[in-house]
């Protein structure tokens, strides 16, 4: 088994950056394509009247696009065939199901999310969710 298309999720946290580094070295060794994805979490459960949340998501999206530039550069510097994408949507569903399905991903690399106890209780860790629900292999970087 050789991984051809690797997805790494980033969010600016140190854990995610470690996951990114692991992703880079694996992609290099395996000559795989690396998909670097940053998701702006948007929950259908929080829709409010008059669409007031939209502007916020849109701004976050624009900022995330800028923040992805250094990752693109780092990957390119190492000679990796990489693609960066900013996405808006439910972070768990996107990373575990839709993005891997659409891009034929065979390995997902994520950092252990740095949520505190309350965050874990109410929304659960993203990485745990992906680990349990994804159809392809998942590597969690500590």
């Amino acid at each position: 088994m050789k991984y051809k298309r690797i997805l790494v999720g980033v969010d600016g946290s140190p854990q995610a950056d470690r996951a990114f580094n692991v992703g880079c070295s694996l992609a290099k060794v395996l000559a795989a394509k690396l998909y670097i994805v940053w998701v702006v979490n948007r929950d259908r459960g929080m829709e409010s009247s008059f669409g007031v949340n939209e502007d916020f998501y849109r701004d976050q999206y624009a900022q995330v696009k800028d923040k992805l530039a250094p990752y693109t550069k780092k990957a390119a510097d190492q000679g990796i065939d990489a693609e960066t994408q900013a996405l808006v949507g439910n972070v768990k569903v996107l990373l575990s199901k839709s993005f891997p399905a659409e891009n034929k991903i065979d390995l997902i690399i994520l950092g252990q999310t740095g949520r505190n106890v309350i965050g874990k209780l109410s929304i659960g860790s993203h990485s745990t969710y992906v680990l349990q629900n994804s159809d392809v292999d998942v590597l969690i970087v500590k």
Binding site: R44, M46, N90, K92, I118, S122
Partner: peptide
């Protein structure tokens, strides 16, 4: 407080 630290309810909770 919950909103200020970035917790949202997910679609599943909403449903």
């Amino acid at each position: 407080w919950i909103i200020s630290i970035g917790i949202t309810q997910t679609k599943r909770v909403n449903d």
